[in-house]
Design a protein around this nucleic acid. Structure first.
Length: 912
DNA sequence: GCAAGGTC
């Protein structure tokens, strides 16, 4: 090799990498810097030798993608074409306006170079950007020789090795991204245009926003993210509290107080709990059966990556992920922390951890801790653990410059810098050490246990002030020791639904299901807020808006998983196949676009489902103009709800029949007819049972294949409530409509149009289990108006407000073994524990068998939902069997009625 | 006026 000097154009993904590469390769010798056409992307120049070839090196950068994908001009305008055409409309890549100056720099420099070396990040997106750079440069210099530098970190050895071992750019990687971009664009644009144009003007959405240009966007990342929020919301709505019982024991001695928990945990059968409890009270002597001591370690966190930074900032400082990334970016730009967009939670082995700690020694708050870390005699140092993720591009987030705070910093800068530093110091520290004691008791054959913990060494907890480790003292006990408990109580509680999703929960869901990347997750969350699909409360928890819930409900009723993460997962698999050469880009594009187009066309055919879902929450707008004309039909009877208009038989555009009030949308009385109806016509035959009359009978024809064999295809039926055949067919086959019930849990099947109607054992009208549909008090007529926000299918009114927080409480129906059918009010607010049985409100006792309105489980037990065996706190629950003197033995009396002449299991007043 | 992905 050797010979005359060649010009080499080096291009990095961002200015900071260009600077690092240039600094490392030039060894800071003879490095010249000049301006490019764009403000941020400088050009570095120096001499270098690649495998003996003398080179004049020019190092510059882009800022991420240089190009965007867009439809051809003819398809840009929303009304320019049918959205279905967007699945095959021509697309092209172009350099957007704000990137044109970068393109000019590349063109100008490429003209005078012989080689182009691509220093883009070594991931799929980076490879794709590499080809964008190639496209621009090769267009002005056909003779350019193209090379790719592969590096995994910006350190000397890696960079020098990379430049001496240049490889070919990887077309497969770039193709995978091309496919992803095209699929995202076509699906996103087609569904967004479709649902925006369909719904925006059809419904009065002033309650959502005054913005007349509201866009109802659909995206393969934003919708699954919304789906997580809605799903949790539904789970909460459909939660049925279950009453449970547990025995608590406490013992106060000169040494202090010990609280023992029943080892059976929570028992859901009242009678069994009472019987066991009475056995304990009859023989209350406690014998200590076991005393165990052992050492416990609490480990520091793994090195910090983006998602953990976002989650922790949300938990510790209540910062949104979007805000966190903005502030982290600013700290990064100013050089205080390392690159904040990283998946890596493992320090590369060559990281000089000691130097980073040394830099922090002078800090007034954590400087002395840093000094202790460096003192080998203190034994505080520990080599950091590995979280097991490495994106091969960036290290974990760590401090890169010492600061005691800068004049331009806001509170968020302070907090985030402190988090990054303390997190780093924690990572290289020993775990906290605790001594735990567990004491086990036997009372009448029942086992109880208590535990205590003493922290022996705080270690990393000294610097990581965001975490704590509760220590609780427990008096000493010895095996064989006996005592009479100070209190032995039978306490009750009810299971609580899980909480709304927090921002940290949401990020975890997205991470787990592969929705978005660490650099974009916060964007998707913000988009949901910007689009009015969800709101975030002061506790950083997300609730879907009516709009968000309607959209998910609509697609769910079509039976589509468009709001689930599967679509993205399939796409991710396809991308992987393309990047490995197992499938071609064209293959993946053709198959997934064909599938998505079919899905789109089908969704459009079923658009009535979206309408119905929207009708649950929104009034029809006058502007609707009749996109969804209801065909006027024949009168069946007078509307019993508004008593002003007639109910008429209609066939919906999807082919299903219903009887609806002509007063729609003011009156929403509607009766949905069985799905298998193929024809229906109102006759002059008047039902002689149903009142108020007249109710005209309808001649039905059913599709034989869709109904059970013992039913006839032809049926003269009545919709007034007397017709068992009709009721049974609706129960068996479902209606053509979505059901009035919400609160569907994740287990609800939805593979066919009838799924929500075929659940066993519950009434199809009101979804309650206490009666069958033929005995439903609402009969066939269900007012869709009742299905408003915040009321689930158990709601019967909102006449009680929470005495704790004032929130109106829904009246619901219990479905527990002991209280089936019994009504109760419970506060919908997450942090409120208000609960009261309706009968105790009505008879003026104000309390319930739970002893008080606050007999709730604690926060700690909520996450487990129906958590059998959960030991959540029950401290405020009924205290049933402790005498005034504190001696349980002398105070023996029936738990149920208080009579000392018998126990609860023989009580004549006890319910079953 | 649509997506998601880079990054400033």
């Amino acid at each position: 090799m050797g010979g005359r000097t060649i010009n080499v154009l080096n291009v990095a993904e961002k200015p900071s990498v260009a600077k690092s590469v240039a600094t490392i390769l030039s060894r800071n010798q003879g490095l010249r810097i000049r301006e490019g056409r764009s403000r941020y992307n400088k050009i570095f120049e120096f001499s270098y030798s690649i495998r003996g070839q003398p080179c004049h090196m020019l190092v510059t950068s882009v800022t991420g993608h240089l190009m965007e994908l867009e439809f051809d001009e003819r398809y840009r305008k929303w009304h320019s074409c049918d959205p279905a055409e967007l699945y095959h409309a021509p697309v092209r890549k172009y350099v957007p306006e704000d990137k044109k100056d970068i393109r000019r720099t590349l063109e100008e420099e490429a003209r005078r170079c012989q080689w182009l070396v691509l220093w883009l990040d070594c991931d799929r997106e980076g490879e794709n950007i590499a080809f964008e750079v190639i496209e621009v440069c090769a267009a002005v210099n056909r003779h350019l020789i193209l090379k790719r530098a592969r590096f995994s970190a910006l350190i000397d050895r890696e960079i020098h090795e990379a430049v001496q071992n240049l490889v070919e750019p990887n077309q497969w990687f770039a193709d995978a991204v091309d496919a992803r971009q095209e699929i995202d664009l076509r699906i996103g644009a087609s569904f967004t245009r479709f649902q925006t144009m369909l719904l925006r003007d059809a419904f009065a959405m002033d309650s959502v926003t005054d913005d007349k240009n509201l866009v109802l966007s659909y995206g393969p990342c934003q919708f699954p993210t919304l789906g997580f929020i809605v799903e949790r919301y539904w789970e909460i709505q459909s939660h049925e509290p279950e009453e449970f019982w547990t025995i608590n024991c406490s013992h106060r001695s000169d040494e202090g107080l010990a609280t023992f928990n029943w080892m059976r945990g929570n028992m859901f059968d009242y009678t069994s709990a009472v019987i066991i409890y009475e056995m304990c009270v009859e023989e209350p002597t406690a014998t200590v059966t076991n005393v165990r001591h052992h050492e416990r370690l609490k480990y520091p966190p793994h090195p910090l990556n983006t998602i953990e930074l976002e989650k922790r900032a949300s938990r510790y400082f209540r910062m949104s992920s979007e805000q966190t990334m903005k502030v982290a970016e600013e700290l990064y730009q100013a050089g205080f922390i390392s690159y904040p967009r990283t998946e890596t939670d493992t320090f590369p082995s060559r990281t000089d951890l000691h130097t980073i700690v040394e830099e922090q020694q002078g800090h007034p708050d954590w400087g002395s801790y840093a000094q202790r870390l460096l003192d080998s005699g203190a034994g505080l140092w520990r080599n950091p653990s590995s979280g097991g993720h490495d994106d091969k591009a960036h290290p974990p987030i760590q401090p890169t410059k010492f600061s005691t705070g800068e004049s331009g910093w806001r509170e968020e800068h302070w907090k985030l810098y402190e988090l990054v530093v303390r997190h780093f110091l924690a990572c290289v520290s020993q775990p906290a050490v605790g001594a735990e004691t567990i004491i086990e008791l036997d009372i009448a054959g029942e086992l109880f246990s208590a535990s205590g913990r003493v922290i022996l060494a705080k270690n990393y907890l000294d610097v990581y002030r965001f975490e704590s480790w509760g220590g609780s003292m427990i008096p000493p006990y010895v095996v064989g020791q006996q005592f009479i408990p100070t209190a032995l109580t039978l306490d009750s509680g009810v299971t609580r639904p899980p909480p709304l999703l927090s921002e940290a929960d949401l990020l975890s869901c997205m991470d787990k299901e592969g929705i978005g990347t660490d650099a974009t997750m916060h964007d998707h969350i913000k988009k949901l807020l910007d689009r009015f699909y969800a709101t975030k409360d002061t506790n950083m928890r997300f609730t879907p808006t009516n709009l968000g819930e309607s959209l998910v409900m609509g697609y769910d009723d079509m039976g589509y998983k468009l709001w689930k993460p599967y679509l993205r997962a399939v796409m991710e698999r396809d991308m992987k196949a393309v990047s490995e050469g197992a499938k071609s880009k064209a293959e993946v594009l053709a198959s997934s676009l064909q599938q998505m187009k079919a899905c789109f066309l089908d969704a459009r055919l079923n658009k009535v489902k979206l309408f119905e879902a929207m009708e649950v929450f929104f009034e029809r707008s006058n502007r609707s103009g009749g996109d969804e004309q209801h065909v006027a039909g024949e009168v069946v009877r007078r509307c019993g709800l508004c008593q002003e208009e007639d109910m008429v038989l209609k066939r919906k555009p999807d082919g299903n029949f219903m009887v609806g009030c002509l007063g729609f949308p003011q009156c929403r009385n509607a009766i949905w007819l069985p799905g298998p109806v193929s024809e229906a016509a109102v006759t002059t035959n008047i039902c002689n049972i149903c009142t108020p009359g007249p109710v005209y009978k309808i001649q039905f024809k059913f599709r034989l294949l869709e109904i059970p064999p013992n039913y006839n295809a032809n049926h003269l039926g009545c919709i007034g409530g007397c017709d068992e055949t009709l009721i049974q067919l609706i129960e068996i086959c479902g209606t053509g409509s979505r059901m009035p019930a919400r609160g569907r849990g994740p287990t609800a099947p939805s593979s066919n149009g009838y799924q929500s109607n075929t659940r066993q054992g519950s009434c199809i009208y009101c979804q309650e289990t206490g009666h069958s549909s033929s005995g439903c008090p609402s009969q066939l007529s269900v007012s869709r108006n009742a299905r408003s926000r915040g009321m689930n299918h158990h709601n019967e009114g909102t006449s009680v407000s929470c005495s704790t927080c004032g929130t109106p409480c829904a009246l619901r129906t219990a479905n527990t073994a002991n209280n089936r059918g019994r009504k109760f009010y419970s506060c919908p607010s997450r942090d409120c524990n208000f609960f009261v049985w309706e009968d105790s409100v009505n008879n003026g006792t104000g309390g319930s068998s739970l002893g008080s309105n606050t007999g709730r489980t604690s926060n700690a037990s909520r996450n487990s939902g129906r958590g059998r065996g959960n030991r959540g706190g029950l401290h405020a629950a009924a205290t049933a069997f402790v005498s005034a003197t504190g001696d349980p033995v002398s105070g023996r009396r029936c738990f149920v009625c208080g009579d000392p002449s018998h126990f609860a299991n023989g009580c004549p007043n006890r319910g079953t």
